[in-house]
Design a protein around this nucleic acid. Structure first.
Lengths: 74, 74
DNA sequence: ACATTTTGTCAAGTATATTAGACATTGTTT
DNA sequence: AAACAATGTCTAATATACTTGACAAAATGT
């Protein structure tokens, strides 16, 4: 019955540790719009796998270091 | 100017090592249609991050063990 | 206090992922 | 050879991601 997953991310923390990189800068590095970065950081929706990779790349980390997922309820 | 990425995957190999698990079975485990599994395995398009996580989960491995990406040219 | 930057948010449009149904092809089993 | 399972592929519909433009709110700098 369609287990539900919730995807979480550490974008805020990663920006902080990257000398408080701005959403705008991240957007530029990942070649995506600022609004999209904002929405993803706020978990409004989850990105495509492609964008997820580009974001990880912008921080120089692995995709698993940016995004994680949890199975909701069991 | 919009670097191009290509996403690759090891689904075929992972199915093989999982006792030749069928696309149908993988589809069921990842709660996705068989056609989608087929298309993704053949790199016709890349999945959503959510589905990428579910596929990794179906094999009991990390997302980076299923998908990888390469920067095209440079 | 004023100006500037950063973030949050909305709406409407475009692009891409995912679906179901159907059928052809290939490989396997009897 | 006939039956069956697995894969490949197409089409049309629906869902979700992503875009631009614009404006308000919050934070930061002078």
């Amino acid at each position: 019955m369609a287990r539900k997953f919730k995807i979480t991310n550490n974008i805020r923390k990663l920006r902080f540790f990257a000398n408080e990189m701005t959403q705008q800068e991240l957007a530029k590095k990942a070649e995506v719009s600022r609004q999209t970065v904002n929405a993803i950081e706020a978990s409004k929706y989850s990105p495509s796998l492609e964008l997820a990779f580009r974001i990880a790349d912008a921080f120089g980390v692995k995709i698993g270091d940016v995004f994680d997922y949890e199975v909701k309820g069991e």
